[in-house]
Write a protein that binds this DNA or RNA. Structure first.
Lengths: 148, 148
DNA sequence: ACGAAAGCCGAGCAAATCAGTAGGAAATAA
DNA sequence: TTATTTCCTACTGATTTGCTCGGCTTTCGT
């Protein structure tokens, strides 16, 4: 039940882009450096995000990446699904095309995995990049108060 | 975010034992056959469950495995934790000993993974083997109604 | 026009994990 | 004593993970 670095790095990178939304394209090496991610590896991940339409790229000098939609319209679930595939603890409850299983109608464990899937999806789909920006702002304020 | 076969097979095997709770020891090859699991592989999994105190074994002919506690005191979460380790989408929100991360206080993504962890744990910890037995009974009754 | 800064692309690779197999030793009921 | 069963250790092929490497193309600034 682990998330791979694909999902983790992807969410970090997208959050970074959200924090810089409106400031023009952000080069990948900047994102990689700020988040301690191998640039070459992140390149592969962001290629997937780009093909899925979550970010767009600007080539050439002074180029970089930009969110393709505003932060409030992108959820963590969107990012995870693109990078890690459909949310499903086991394939027989896959969101897209559940693996066929002849026992599905009588399978008790299957119902459990479906509950897990729904509960994870509910959490991830309810959090937008904008929510994260706001939480970040709150954290900073608290941190400020702490130093007074 | 996939469960491995360890967790899946483990829950199936434990449910099988729950269905036979009170009928003496059930040999492993029976459980393996009924659930389409490689016996040798299941052997390794049940060894872990035994060492964790969830099942007890009776050696020798007519031996087998028995639940070590009654079905209502064993949750799916117990089984999963034993076989798959602590519930945590990423190590920095590990239930037992969270991996140290210097940015933890300011990490926005970390809060998300903690929410996912809690939501998965809540589902798994709320389902006991007895709940599964009852659901199974309901399904059988529905199936009976269907054939009238 | 040129060079530096960027994205784009495909190949390769070491380590870890998964999902088993294989083979036998020890215990026990009949 | 024999069949049945658990117990234990080691090995293994396939897949995934988390990268690295090298080169090509596009574009901005001068």
């Amino acid at each position: 039940m682990k998330l791979s670095t694909k999902g983790r790095y992807g969410v970090k990178a997208m959050f970074d882009l959200a924090q810089n939304y409106g400031s023009g394209p952000i080069p990948l090496n900047t994102i990689a450096r700020r988040n301690n991610i191998s640039e070459h590896y992140l390149e592969q991940l962001i290629a997937v995000l780009r093909k899925a339409g979550l970010v767009k790229s600007v080539r050439g000098a002074q180029g970089g990446y930009i969110l393709n939609k505003s932060p409030e319209t992108i959820t963590v679930g969107d990012i995870i699904r693109v990078l890690e595939g459909p949310i499903a603890p086991v394939d027989c409850v896959n969101e897209d095309e559940p693996e066929h299983c002849e026992n599905a109608d009588f399978c008790i464990t299957r119902n459990i995995w479906a509950k897990v899937r729904d509960s994870v999806a509910q959490v991830l789909d309810s959090i937008t990049l904008k929510d994260m920006l706001e939480e970040s702002k709150n954290l900073q304020e608290q941190s400020y108060m702490y130093y007074i």
